[in-house]
Nucleic acid binder design. Structure first.
Lengths: 366, 366
DNA sequence: CTGTCGAATGGTACCGGTACCATTACCCAA
DNA sequence: TTGGGTAATGGTACCGGTACCATTCGACAG
C-alpha cells in the first residue's frame, strides 16, 4: 500500500524501473531481465525484484520498451466496419491467436474507402506496428508501396489476391458464387437473379458477380444483367425494396441468389409478405453461413465460410512472418461449403426438400 | 524516390527526424515543430522540411513521441466479444468520435470474464493508453483500484452504475425491462415468460431480470421463476430449444419477453414451426432494436437502444476528461424507447394490431 | 596453479522524439 | 537611445526502457 491516491489530480509520478531497482538493491538491467528473461536471474534476486515491484505498484512502460526494443507487440487491423458480422468474425478469430501470444490489436475502420484505409495504414506505420491486417485486397497503390517498402508483415483477409502484398487467407468468392449459380442451373432454374452489396472498391462482391455471370453463361441461363441483377446496401429493408423492384421488372424470376444472409433474409421476409411461397414460387440462397440462416422458415440455403478459421490462420501466418519463421504458402485458400436447405428446392418445381447435407466443391475457382 | 527497397530483408534503417533535419538544414526541433505546430514555423522553413520529408520517406515515430510527450493518443477498449452486435455498435460510434480527433482504439476481448478484463486493463495501463473504455459495470475490485489509483480516464458503457469508476453512459436496463413487462400487464397478459442471456458477471442481464420481476410483482402477474424464466446463450437455436421447454413446463404461457432480438427471433421462428400464431397464441417482445426486428413476420416489438449515440457520447465525454475539460455529469442516461409492433397485440386476445408508434417512458428506472 | 567457461549482474549508450529554456533578430513604444 | 515584446530557431537533457559489452566469481579441466 505504498501507492498514493493522487489528491492533486496530476498523477504523482509513477514508479519507474530505476525506482524498483533501487528498492530491490539491484541494477535496472536486472529488473528488466527479471521481467523479460527470468531464467537469467537467480531465484533470490527474482524475489527481491518481485517484492520491490509489489511495493511500488510498478507497471512496466511498454512504450519505452517498444522504443528501445523496436517491437510494439501490436498488430494494426483495418476492418471496413464492425457492423459487418462476417468481418467481425474474421477479426475475432484473428484476435484470439494474437492475444495468446501477447499481441494486441489496434483497430481502424475504413468504411470501404481505400483512401481512408491508406490514411489508417500510415498511422499504423507511424505507430510502428509489428504487422498489419487488411480486409480484402482492394487497396491504393500507395498502401501497397508503403507496406512493401517498409517490409511490414501484412495479411489480407477474405480474398485470394493474384498479387498479394505479402500474405493472404481467404476463399474463392468467384468460386462460391459460381457454385451456387451452378446449383440452381442443375436444379433446372433458368431465371436466376442476383443481389449483391455495392461493388465499388469491394473486390469480394465483384468476384461474386463474376462467378454468377460465368455460371449464367456456361449453363445458358437467362442472361439479363439489367433485369435480374441489383446492387444494394447490406440491409434487410433495402433487400425488401429491391425484391419488389425485381418482381416488377421480372415477374417470371424463379430463383434469387443473395451474397449476404441478411439480404437473403430481408428478401425472404418480403416474399412472404407478398404472399409468395419459398421455394415453390421463388427459391432463395444466401451467403456467409450465419446462424440465422438455418433458423429461418424455410431454412436458408447458404454458403458457409470458415470465418474463425480464416481469422485464426491469418493470425498464425502473420506471427510466423513476424518471427521470421518460413511461411510455406503466402496465399491460403480455406474453401467454402454450400449448405442446401429448404429455401431452394432439389429440383425446380419439386419443392419441399429437407436436405441438410453439405457439399464441398473445390474452393479454388478464383 | 530516394527510398531503397531493402534487399537484405533486414530493413535499411528508417529515416529519423535528425536525418530530415540535416537534409532540410534546420534543427530536429524545428522539424518536430513543423509537424506538430506548423504555425510556429515560417512558411519557408516549412517547405524545406516538407521537401526533406518527401525525399527521405520519413514516417514520424509515434512511439518515441509518446514516450517523450507522455500521451499515446490511444484508448484501450474492452469489449466482451465482437460477435455481439450491440457491443459492436457501441464501439463503432465510440470509434468514430475518437478517429476524428486523432485517437485510435486498442482492442481487448474479455469474453465476459472479469479476470480476463483485469488482465487486459493491466496490459492497457502498461501501454499507457490515454483512456479506457469498458463494457458494462461488472469489474474486479483490482480493476477499479488500478484505474482509480492511476487516475486513468475511464468510461463504462451500457449500464448506469451506482458507483462508476469515472464516467458512464448507458440506459436503464432495469427500467427498460420493467417497461416492457408493464406493457404486457397493461395489455392484459398475466403469464409472461422471460428469456435472458446468462446473468453471471453481466449486470445488464441481472438488471433486466430485476426489472421484469419488479413489474411482475407490482402488477400481480403470474410469478413463477422456475417455470417462466430461463437463461440461455445468445443463440437462435438455444432460443428455439428453450421455447420448447417453456411450452412443456407452461403450455398456458401467453407472452414472452426476450432480452435480445436474436433470441426473440429464434423463439418466434420456433413458435411458427410449432404451428403457433404470433401474437394470438403467444406474444413476443425483443430487446435492442436491431434492424431485423422490424423486418420479421410478424414484425417484432422491441426496445430500441440509442446504440451509436451511447458510443458517441462516451467518446466525447472521455475526450473531455482527457483534455481536463470539465465534465458536467459523470453518469449519462440516454434512455430507451419501446417500439410496439405486430408481435405483441394491443390487448391480449385482440390481435392484429399494426401500431408502429414509439413510446418513450422515463429511462431512469434503474 | 592457470586458463576457460558459464552464470549472474552491472554500466553505458542509445532508441527517436519533445519539453524547456536560451538565443537571435527585429519592431515598436517611451 | 533603450527596454520590452514577439517571431523563429536552436541546444540540451530527458522520457523509461533495453542492447550490448564488461566484469566478477566460482567450478572445473589440463
Amino acid at each position: 500500500m505504498t501507492k498514493m491516491s493522487d489528491p492533486t489530480g496530476r498523477g504523482a509520478k509513477r514508479a519507474g524501473i530505476r525506482d524498483v531497482a533501487r528498492l530491490a538493491g539491484v541494477a535496472p538491467m536486472t529488473v528488466s531481465r527479471a521481467l523479460s528473461f527470468p531464467h537469467l536471474v537467480s531465484a533470490e534476486t527474482r524475489e527481491k525484484v518481485a517484492a520491490a515491484i509489489a511495493a511500488t505498484g510498478y507497471i512496466p512502460n511498454r512504450v519505452a520498451s517498444s522504443l528501445s526494443s523496436n517491437q510494439t507487440m501490436t498488430i494494426g487491423a483495418v476492418i471496413p466496419t464492425l457492423r459487418n458480422s462476417i468481418a467481425a468474425d474474421f477479426a475475432e478469430g484473428f484476435n484470439q491467436v494474437l492475444r495468446a501470444r501477447g499481441y494486441h490489436l489496434l483497430l481502424g475502420n475504413s468504411e470501404f474507402v481505400p483512401e481512408d484505409e491508406e490514411a489508417i495504414v500510415v498511422e499504423f506505420l507511424s505507430r510502428r506496428v509489428d504487422g498489419i491486417y487488411l480486409t480484402g485486397s482492394t487497396h491504393t497503390e500507395r498502401t501497397r508501396k508503403l507496406l512493401r517498402d517498409n517490409a511490414v508483415p501484412t495479411v489480407e483477409i477474405a480474398s485470394l489476391p493474384e498479387d498479394p502484398i505479402d500474405l493472404a487467407v481467404g476463399f474463392s468468392n468467384f468460386g462460391a458464387a459460381y457454385a451456387v449459380t451452378k446449383m440452381f442451373a442443375e436444379q433446372g432454374y433458368r431465371k436466376v437473379a442476383l443481389f449483391t452489396t455495392f461493388t465499388k472498391d469491394n473486390e469480394r462482391q465483384v468476384e461474386r458477380q463474376a462467378g454468377y455471370h460465368a455460371a449464367v453463361h456456361e449453363f445458358g441461363l437467362d442472361d439479363d444483367p439489367e433485369g435480374l441483377v441489383a446492387e444494394l446496401e447490406m440491409d434487410l429493408k433495402a433487400a425488401a425494396r429491391q425484391l419488389r423492384l425485381l418482381l416488377e421488372r421480372r415477374p417470371d424470376v424463379e430463383a434469387l441468389f443473395c451474397t449476404g444472409d441478411f439480404i437473403a433474409a430481408g428478401a425472404l421476409f418480403e416474399a412472404q409478405r407478398l404472399g409468395l411461397t419459398v421455394p415453390q414460387d421463388l427459391a432463395i440462397a444466401g451467403f456467409e453461413g450465419l446462424e440465422i440462416a438455418e433458423n429461418l422458415n424455410p431454412s436458408l440455403t447458404t454458403v458457409r465460410i470458415p470465418r474463425y478459421e480464416i481469422g485464426r490462420k491469418a493470425g498464425e501466418m502473420l506471427l510466423d512472418r513476424i518471427a521470421r519463421r518460413p511461411v510455406e504458402t503466402p496465399v491460403v485458400d480455406l474453401g467454402f461449403e454450400i449448405i442446401r436447405r429448404e429455401s431452394t428446392a432439389a429440383t425446380a418445381g419439386q419443392p419441399k426438400v429437407r436436405a441438410e447435407a453439405g457439399e464441398r466443391p473445390a474452393g479454388t475457382g478464383g
